[in-house]
Design a binder for these strands. Structure first.
Length: 257
DNA sequence: ATGGTCGAACCTCGA
């Protein structure tokens, strides 16, 4: 089973790029972040033509998450365990092909001294609790998405400049480590030790051209799935195209026999 | 050089 995480930065602006990626790679499941569209305007037909069904949680202009799968989607659950009715649409969970897939878009946090940063940390705490109350580390589960946190120095193009700043702050590291302590493993890191492999580059200042990026998009898997990991790839090709998302898709392959 | 570039919807915000 091939599973992808991709922050598309607007599904309507990116539908052709997404379709091209799906045709090239034929993943079974695609977790999408930052759809930036209300449910009624989501491009279901384009994905349907390629054989994908979609579960989604959209809102106007900002945020929005979706999961597309070639297999039936069941037990769809939107939001963190304690989300109120007006919560931003940042998490959707489904079961497909026997795997629980949780797709999330963690708040950016804006800047470490602002209230938004504390909300980001709280989101990660609440994400851990959501896993605790709805899932088991002994079952096949993939938690994927844009976490807006680079975990290690090798995930940052200039670790000294980023030290203590947004995306690379010790409080963010502790909060994300708490999520992983549920019983999850970073699929890309389980297979690759290399530095300089990023999933996001700022649109500005030629950052992609100069590989000034961060690895902030992850697929985290439970132990049983880690033992069945066959590959993990960050596909930078879509980032090279005209009108790209600022994020690259990350894909894993699981041998589920 | 405190810059720069996107998407969505609106004349600005969030990233």
């Amino acid at each position: 089973m091939k599973i992808v995480s991709w922050n598309v930065n607007g599904i309507r602006a990116r539908i052709d790029a997404v379709a091209a990626f799906l045709e090239r790679n034929e993943p079974d499941v695609l977790g999408i972040q930052e759809t930036k569209v209300v449910d009624d305007d989501f491009p279901f037909e384009e994905l349907g033509r390629l054989g994908y069904q979609v579960s989604l949680a959209g809102q106007p202009a900002y945020n929005g998450v979706a999961i597309a799968s070639r297999m039936p989607l069941t037990d769809v659950k939107v939001g963190l365990f304690d989300d109120g009715p007006d919560a931003e649409k940042r998490l959707i969970a489904v079961t497909t092909g026997g795997v629980r897939v949780v797709c999330t878009y963690v708040p950016n946090g804006k800047s470490v001294e602002l209230p938004s940063f504390q909300e980001k940390l709280r989101f990660l705490e609440r994400l851990r609790t959501t896993l605790d109350v709805t899932a088991s580390p002994d079952a096949p589960l993939v938690l994927l998405g844009d976490f807006n946190v680079a975990r290690e120095a090798r995930d940052v193009y200039d670790p000294q400049a980023f030290a203590g700043r947004l995306h690379f702050h010790p409080d963010e590291h502790r909060a994300l480590d708490r999520v992983l302590a549920f019983g999850l493993f970073d699929a890309y890191r389980a297979l690759h030790e290399d530095a300089g492999r990023y999933s996001w580059w700022d649109y500005r200042s030629g950052d992609f051209r100069n590989n000034r990026g961060l690895r902030i998009d992850y697929l985290f898997v439970t132990q049983g799935l880690r033992d069945r990991l066959r590959s993990a790839v960050i596909d930078v090709e879509p980032r090279r195209e005209p009108k790209p998302s600022d994020h690259a898709p990350v894909m894993i392959e699981l041998d589920l026999g």
